[in-house]
Amino acid sequence: MTELEIKGFIKVLTDYFLSVTGSPANMGVPFIKENSTEVFDYVAVIGISGSRKGGVYFTANRPLLEEIARHILGETGLDDATLYDLIGEMTNTISGNMRELFGSTFLISVPIILKGNIDEVVLRLKPPVYVIPIEWNGHKSHLAIGLE
């Protein structure tokens, strides 16, 4: 991963939160993930193939997803299935938007929703894995990228 590519992911994340919610998210300083994997309650992974190989995962807690869903649907009190669907869609959108930088040979899978199996996340990403911390409206989340 180059600095330009990491900046590309940060731009896509920034644009996503601004476009969907109207308020920007703050991006922390990206770092390379160590062995211990911190994930929040909800995790979705996109497999990457084509010109690059590896994966991207996005992880967040319920309050963040509930607020994003409220912005999209105008509804509250959504069930777990809807929030898992949402995190899959967010990960898909962020990964798909990266085609603007990587081009059409950057192929993305459909989202894979992970429930509690952290090791499974680690296996899908190619080290080194870069983590971009995100804070939006007081809620923490992060995007992790591991691409050959």
């Binding site: 898909n92 990964s95 938007n97 085609r99 081009g103």
Partner: peptide
């Protein structure tokens, strides 16, 4: 689509799509 690259949009239009909207 989330696939935000010009080539994908052009491909969709060539195949007969009336419009292309990128997510979000």
């Amino acid at each position: 689509s989330a696939l935000k690259d010009p080539a994908t949009g052009i491909q969709a239009i060539k195949k007969g799509a009336r419009g292309f909207l990128s997510k979000p």
